[in-house]
């Protein structure tokens, strides 16, 4: 399988404190990779590095076989091909349609294509018919689904999800999980999801990385990690600290 991200000896330091230490990881095209670990362990920072909102302090970071050095032009080029979904979506003070259409308009799609694609994306996330509603009036679950539609509407190669279901009710959790699988199966989109919801990992992920205090202590298949974790600390995390 082709590598999409290759990360070697990556370190990130904030104000003298190592938030990520010596990370080595490859993420392959078309997989659903779950990054798990307790809160405050560096998952968000890691996703932000993948979307170029943070610059690694040290180490190698390659996207699609090319080293990333972070010029504005290159940042934009990589972001054109990916999308980061925040834990709490930032909603533009516009209609649902205009929110979802945003990435398409930025890419200069013509009006009829925009309309078609937005309609399709809203259908996928179950928000059909809400085009003209003000996005700020959506419920938390609806807003997250709208943000999901906004992120997938232009067909990114990789979707970076930061705790996308942390604040949602069971119905919306199930819905988002279904969407994640759907988009990967149908479009081959690579998914990197940060979560501390272990049942969710079991349900959707292909591979899992355990991040503990900034260190990636284990990378394993989802089957492997739940049956025979390769690291005592990940075993403790998987058994002990309960989720939600």
């Amino acid at each position: 399988m082709a590598e999409l991200f290759r990360i070697c000896n990556l370190t990130k330091t904030f104000a003298g404190k190592d938030v990520l230490k010596n990370i080595n990881l490859r993420i392959y095209r078309g997989e659903i990779f779950a990054l798990i670990g307790p809160s405050g362990t560096g998952k968000t920072t890691f996703l932000r590095i993948l979307n170029l909102f943070e610059k690694p302090t040290n180490g190698i970071f390659e996207f699609d076989g090319k080293p990333v050095n972070g010029t504005p032009l290159e940042k934009n080029r990589i972001r054109q091909r990916s999308s980061l979904l925040f834990q709490t979506p930032a909603v533009f003070n516009l209609s649902v349609f205009d929110n979802v259409a945003y990435g398409l308009k930025v890419r200069g799609f013509d009006k009829s294509t925009v309309e078609k694609k937005v309609k399709e994306a809203l259908g996928i996330v179950g928000l059909s018919g809400m085009e003209t509603q003000k996005a700020r009036t959506l419920s938390g679950g609806e807003a997250q689904r709208m943000a999901f539609a906004r992120a997938i509407v232009y067909g990114p190669e990789v979707l970076l999800l930061d705790e996308p279901t942390a604040n949602l009710d069971p119905y919306n959790v199930a819905k988002i999980e279904e969407l994640i699988r759907h988009i990967r199966d149908k479009c081959g989109t690579t998914i990197v999801i940060a979560t501390h919801n272990l049942p969710q990992v079991k349900r959707i992920a292909d591979r899992v990385g355990v991040l503990l205090e900034g260190k990636l202590i284990e990378v394993n298949s989802v089957g492997g990690i739940f049956t025979s974790p390769g690291d005592a600390r990940s075993a403790a995390f998987l058994k002990g600290e309960m989720v939600y």
């Binding site: 979307n51 909102f53 504005p72 940042k75 934009n76 972001r79 054109q80 990916s82 999308s83 980061l84 925040f86 709490t88 979506p89 930032a90 533009f92 003070n93 516009l94 945003y102 990435g103 930025v106 890419r107 906004r150 992120a151 232009y154």
Partner: peptide
Amino acid sequence: VPEPIIETVYTLGGREKDVVLTTLLE
């Protein structure tokens, strides 16, 4: 205008001019 709004513009593939326009809108 909250910082996440601006980051959302960037992550959706927007450039500096889109950030300015969206900020004006917001």
